[in-house]
Design a binder for these strands. Structure first.
Lengths: 202, 202
DNA sequence: CAGGAAATTGCACCTGGTGCAATATTGCAG
DNA sequence: CTGCAATATTGCACCAGGTGCAATTTCCTG
């Protein structure tokens, strides 16, 4: 028996390779021709699988294009936040949270991240998916705030806090795009937080 | 020639009647059976039109269910806001704007409004459409803020202001739903504005 | 009432997406 | 290495949403 620690077996490796191949093909084709001009059949062909298999990996074409799935906060980030950290000031910790979210959304590689952002800008329809994603994970985010509430009381309902997370995420992406992809997306977080606060307390 | 002032001619009247019939049928059926269990064919049949004609009135099934289209701010509201009114305090005027938006979304009749909200709660997928709607109209909202900026300088980019409009609208709907549909949706606006501000300035 | 504009409709067609059953691949115990 | 069970891939038939086009009907206007 060789139960490989770091290795994951042929099956698992193939699965990952296929997933990557699908996302790569989807993003490349969509960037080349636009979302509506690319069919699932073509993506499947480019990824060397059957169209039917495509749907074993992703629930929809849109999900594949966004590479949705790699998209969660690390345990440390979550625990630290729930415990009232990392700084103890809510708004600062929120910024950290959003930055992690943006990084997770962008994906592991820098390049991949920019590509997703570029696609999102090119195909606003997909932003609807982003919203849907948020809806799906909303309960988790709310739960996170509920836990933090016990460590350090919140100034608002957990649901409202979750909405803030969402809007800041979205606004940061917007701001980043509007300024011509200047620097890292996360670096725009403080600015948008300031602006949103300014509007709401005007 | 009888260019009827108040009247609109048979053609126009029929068009409106049909639109209403479609929305009514769509909402009734969806409330009865759920979004996925209702086909366009059935809605068309209930509205006594052919399936093809359905798509002359609405771009998608979802649009029909939400009755999207009746969904714009009145000229007065817009002009007043652009001119720096109605109160002169940005956040207060924002609240007025959002209330108008919520009212427009709800539709003319009270009953219709609650129905839409009920459907939105029952079928979260449609919230994605709400987001899409916002994306489509975002430029208009941004333009509104740009105009206001000349009358009374804004504390943030027009785009950020538009994001605030969106998040407040959404948060108010949420809050209203969470408190068991208490009173009018619009009455929740001040509360959520306060909460969001509290989080962002914590 | 005639003729033109606008709306309705039928029809053929494409794409996204699912269920099901057959087949192929992988993992594993002997 | 071999055979068997688990798992993945695939083909196939099918449904629903949505569009383009051309024929037909309905409304308006002179």
């Amino acid at each position: 028996m060789t139960p490989p620690a770091g290795d994951l077996g042929l099956r698992e490796r193939k699965k990952r390779a296929r997933t990557d191949a699908i996302v790569d093909a989807a993003q490349r084709l969509v960037l080349e021709r636009g979302l509506d001009a690319v069919t699932v059949e073509e993506i499947a062909e480019a990824a060397q699988i059957s169209p039917r298999t495509f749907f074993n990996y992703f629930e929809s074409k849109d999900d594949a294009v966004l590479g949705q799935g790699s998209f969660e906060l690390s345990a440390e980030t979550r625990e630290a936040f729930a415990a009232g950290g990392p700084t103890g000031r809510l708004v600062a910790d929120l910024e950290v949270l959003v930055r992690s979210l943006l990084a997770a959304f962008a994906g592991p590689g820098k390049h991949q991240g920019e590509q997703v952002m570029e696609i999102l800008q090119l195909e606003p329809r997909l932003l609807g998916r982003h919203f849907a994603w948020f809806e799906r994970h909303k309960t988790q985010v709310v739960a996170l705030f509920e836990r933090r509430h016990e460590a350090a009381p919140l100034p608002a309902d957990p649901e409202m806090c979750a909405m803030v997370v969402f809007v800041v995420t979205r606004a940061a992406m917007d701001d980043w795009a509007r300024t011509g992809h200047e620097g890292d997306v996360g670096d725009h977080v403080p600015h948008v937080v300031g602006q949103l606060a300014a509007v709401l307390t005007s």
